[in-house]
């Protein structure tokens, strides 16, 4: 317990607070204001109270989008986290190979979202796309504009391709930070590879994995551009996720009140899930350096 006596350094975060106030808190307040009114312009608005929230919570299309969203986020986490750890474990540790592999692994992360969507849109086309054409030649009637299962599999595959490198990089840095003494002790004990992974590497990776899982969850929960470009939410509404429903409502139909109510519900869900994730993992390992969270 080393108590900090002089707390004046806290004033240094004041500029950051101001910045956040303008970029996040004031817009959020405005959204709250919109969610309880029917606004036509600043002078023509009607107080609606909780009506929008009631409508949004009971909208079957949005409920379906929410379930779809959870299914998507959990699927990609279940694939990306083990895969990312696996890739990090087999990446070379030193020499030019390490640099080369690092760059190759990082490449997908550098591509903007809508470009990723376009790449996969072309990649999966039946006439000119390598994957679409190849699967078709192999005898499978692959078509993302007709079959919801194909569309789903493709979006999951696209997300895994785009974002597994993030988990792999985080884990790679976490693995590099483990002191050699742990491995020496393991060798003296003749620990198996699995035991080394289970009792040395995995526990040491917990912190980076928390960050990785949180980032990936929030990111995938808000996914927009990639499915929008690839499938446009179709076929039907089988790949319409929450943010796309929201955009259709707010930009397409200009229903600002309902979309504001919907965004707040969306925000609360993300806040709850992220908090539960964070607290569960942080409290399980009770590391004194990670206490003092909010």
């Amino acid at each position: 317990m080393n108590k900090v006596r002089n707390n004046h350094a806290w004033w240094l975060i004041l500029p950051m607070l101001l910045l956040v106030a303008f970029s996040a808190i004031i817009p959020l307040m405005t959204v709250v204001n919109y969610s309880v009114q029917d606004v036509f312009d600043p002078y023509t608005r009607f107080f609606t109270g909780t009506e929008w929230f009631q409508v949004m919570l009971n909208d079957p299309a949005l409920q379906a989008a929410l379930l779809r969203q959870f299914a998507f986020s959990l699927t990609i986490l279940a694939i990306e986290v083990p895969l990312g750890i696996g890739i990090a474990l087999i990446m070379p540790k030193q020499g030019w190979q390490a640099s080369a592999v690092l760059i190759l692994v990082t490449l997908p992360l550098l591509i903007p979202w809508n470009v990723v969507g376009s790449i996969w849109q072309i990649f999966t086309r039946g006439d000119i796309g390598l994957m679409g054409w190849g699967l078709r030649e192999l005898g499978y009637g692959y078509n993302i504009t007709r079959s919801p299962a194909d569309a789903w599999a493709t979006i999951v595959l696209m997300d895994v391709w785009h974002w597994t490198p993030l988990i792999a990089l985080l884990c790679y840095s976490g693995l590099r930070a483990i002191p050699e003494a742990y491995y020496q002790a393991a060798r003296i004990d003749r620990a198996s590879k699995w035991a080394v992974f289970r009792f040395i590497q995995l526990p040491k990776l917990t912190n980076v994995l928390v960050i990785g899982i949180l980032l990936r969850f929030m990111h995938s929960f808000m996914i927009y551009a990639e499915p929008f470009v690839l499938t446009g939410g179709g076929p039907g509404s089988s790949t319409t996720f929450l943010s796309q429903s929201l955009t259709t409502m707010a930009i397409g139909q200009q229903d600002l009140g309902p979309s504001a109510a919907f965004s707040l519900i969306y925000f609360l869900i993300i806040l709850l899930v992220s908090w539960v994730f964070y607290t569960a993992i942080m409290h399980r390992q009770k590391d004194p350096t990670t206490q003092g969270e909010r």
Partner: peptide
Amino acid sequence: SWMVWTVPT
């Protein structure tokens, strides 16, 4: 006025 405040909020 662009923040369209109401008394409850």
